[in-house]
Amino acid sequence: MSTPESNRVALVTGGSGGIGRVVAERLARDGFAVAVQYAGNRAEAEETVAAINAAGGRALAVGGDVADEDAMGTAFDTVRSAFGGIDVVVNTAGIMILAPVETLDLADLDRMHRTNIRGTFVVNQQAARTVRPGGAVVNFSTSVVRTQLPTYGAYVASKAAVEAMTLVLARELRGRDITVNAVAPGPTATPLFLQGKDEETVDKFAKATPLERLGRPEDIAETVAFLAGPARWINGQVLYANGGLA
């Protein structure tokens, strides 16, 4: 049996900024108590919490490296102790380092894969152990898995692993009434995306979609809210939230 909406609890990793912050605020508007996970920027996480609480919601900040199983175990325990359980886990935490396969520093490959692959695995493992019936797990991939842009090879490799993990976990949770899906954003106006890109490059990305604009974090948050709430018949899928990008 699903938990009543007013008693539902969401944990959002990477919730201190970018898409994660907007997702946390969007879920709070739907009545979720929200835990905002952060790795290094406690001040921004506390700002997100303060904004949610000021708007009449309930929120708290939890720290820890998503790739550290002990830290995440503690984070999940903290959320359950504070709010009584966990219904939705949204894993937005990730890093992106771009370089051609030929020249990418392997230390950067390891960093990215530790956060994007191991981090997703650790968070999903905790979610599989704790999310209540009627709940949802939402991972984050990227539309570049499908567009194969140069310099994105290592990043896309990490996100392709996230997609595979998502589809398997959905089937492993058979009979639990828990959905597991991934959202694959297209070019979205966040600091992660805009970093290092000149105006011409950004404009080129914007014109690549039929809607002729970059996505907004709010666009992605609406997709997450759909999967976290009413979309109970969508399971084991990757949703491309990209404005029609091929």
Rank of each mutant, 00 (worst) to 15 (best):
T3E: 10
E5Y: 03
N7W: 00
G15I: 09
G17V: 09
V22P: 13
A28R: 12
A28L: 11
R29H: 07
G31D: 02
G31P: 00
A33K: 12
V34A: 09
Q37I: 00
N41G: 02
R42Q: 15
R42K: 14
E44P: 00
I52S: 05
N53P: 00
N53G: 11
A54V: 12
A55S: 14
G56K: 10
R58P: 01
R58V: 14
A59D: 06
L60T: 15
V62C: 01
A67Y: 04
D68N: 11
T74I: 03
V79L: 05
G85E: 10
V90S: 09
V90D: 10
A93W: 02
G94I: 09
I97S: 04
V101Q: 05
A107L: 13
D108H: 10
R111A: 13
R114A: 11
T115C: 12
T120M: 07
V123A: 13
Q125R: 15
Q125G: 08
Q126W: 06
A127P: 05
V131P: 02
R132Y: 01
R132V: 10
G135M: 07
A136K: 06
F140H: 03
P150H: 05
Y152G: 00
Y155R: 10
Y155Q: 12
A161Q: 11
A161C: 10
T166F: 13
T166K: 14
V168F: 01
R174Y: 02
R174S: 07
I178T: 09
V183L: 15
V183W: 04
V183H: 00
G186T: 10
D198A: 04
D198L: 04
E199N: 05
K207Q: 15
T209K: 07
P210L: 08
E212W: 01
L214E: 03
D219V: 08
D219Q: 04
A221G: 07
V224L: 14
L227R: 08
A228Y: 04
A228W: 01
P230W: 01
A231Q: 10
W233F: 15
N235I: 01
L239E: 08
G244M: 06
L245F: 08
